[in-house]
Design a protein around this nucleic acid. Structure first.
Length: 351
DNA sequence: TTGTGTTTTATTGCCTCC
DNA sequence: GGAGGCAATAAAACACAA
């Protein structure tokens, strides 16, 4: 017993099960057996509570709530003779009838809290003890709360799944945009180089442009040399055919040999850099793909040793600065990074 | 028929409110 | 301090598969 609470209705000896076994009536059948059973299943036993049937406790012991049963055609003789016997079975839990539960459910829908007056009235109408009605409402509230929590959980989970899907979608979109952005920057840089030809007053930009132009000029030079070499070989071969094969090399002086070697070296460099089959060399002269960042480093890493000292000496110092004079660092205010992020160090340098 | 899981009814203990 | 609500739990009733 909690908090001095007094529960009424316990005790007694007989059961309505006995009553129904002996004196069941059609109205009672419809009351106690409808809904929860069908023709193919045996009717369940009456599931009223032991305490629910304690009329004395409900209405001062005058049995006035027998009206609930009388309304279904149960005669007073039945009630008087057997209900007492049934209503006082200890240690048994009785389920409410479908009709009682439906009645309580409707009442619960109206208001899930139970005021004392309403509780007494419901108990009177259903032939239950007020305590039973209170317990039923209490348990019903607990079930409602559990279901509500399940619904809330489902709503939250749906919301979470929706947000997660949005996140994944946005993440993919972001990755896609990043890729597009890189391509856009590359294209912008290339078109920026073209634009620079028509004027860039920024010293850094001008130097880069001069460098870029010089690379193009040198590449054209290399191509010319390649052609000269090929022509020379062709003419030599034709001479061989018409003359005795020489016993000595064509170039018998060291200087001559060195020049040929130099040409071969340069040709090899040219082949590496300007191979017409290379994706970096599209039109043979001015190639945007020359600046493709996939191998962008080579643009600035041209091995100066590939050029003859004469050629190198003839270049302005700002075009081919000494390596020790070049400082790849954070871009100065005058530097030019062509729209690339500043962490792309190769785009920004200063002397 | 029986074992097992679920649902329903009821109890207990604690708490808050008046 | 009594009344009543709530959470946790017990236990009976029920459903169902094997």
């Amino acid at each position: 017993m909690a908090g001095g609470r007094v529960y009424s209705g316990a005790g007694g000896s007989s059961t309505l099960r006995v009553l129904l076994q002996n004196k069941r009536t059609e109205p009672l059948d419809s009351l106690f057996f409808s809904g929860s059973c069908n023709s193919s299943s045996p009717p369940p036993s009456f599931l009223g509570s032991r305490s629910m049937m304690s009329f004395e406790d409900v209405h001062g012991g005058n049995g006035s709530n027998k009206s609930f049963f009388r309304s279904f055609g149960v005669g007073d003789d039945v009630l008087d003779d057997d209900l007492d016997e049934y209503f006082h079975q200890p240690g048994k839990k009785r389920r409410l009838t479908v009709e009682q539960v439906q009645f309580l459910e409707k009442s619960f829908e109206v208001e899930n809290k139970l005021e004392p007056d309403r509780k007494v009235q419901l108990a009177k109408d259903l032939g239950l003890q007020p305590r039973q009605v209170a317990i039923w409402f209490q348990n019903r509230r607990a079930r409602w709360k559990t279901k509500q929590m399940e619904k809330d959980y489902d709503v939250l989970q749906a919301s979470y799944n929706s947000l997660k899907a949005d996140y994944e979608s946005m993440r993919k979109e972001t990755d896609k945009l990043k890729t597009e952005d890189v391509n856009w920057m590359i294209n912008r840089s290339i078109s920026g180089l073209k634009d620079l030809k028509f004027g860039c007053e920024n010293p850094g930009c001008r130097r880069f442009l001069d460098h870029f132009n010089m690379v193009q000029v040198l590449s054209e030079k290399l191509l010319d040399r390649e052609k000269e070499k090929e022509n020379l070989e062709v003419s030599e071969n034709s001479n061989k055919l018409s003359q005795e094969p020489p016993e000595k090399p064509i170039a018998d002086s060291e200087g001559e040999v060195s020049k040929v070697s130099a040409v071969e070296d340069i040709s090899s460099v040219k082949s590496d850099i300007f191979d017409s089959d290379s994706p970096r060399f599209n039109d043979g002269v001015h190639s945007n793909s020359l600046l493709e960042p996939a191998d962008s480093s080579y643009v600035f890493e041209a091995d100066q040793s590939d050029l003859s000292q004469d050629e190198e000496d003839n270049l302005p110092s700002y075009i081919f600065p000494k390596l020790e004079d070049v400082h790849y660092s954070d871009p100065p205010a005058s530097s030019c990074n062509f729209g690339f992020p500043e962490d792309h160090a190769f785009w920004s340098w200063s002397y």
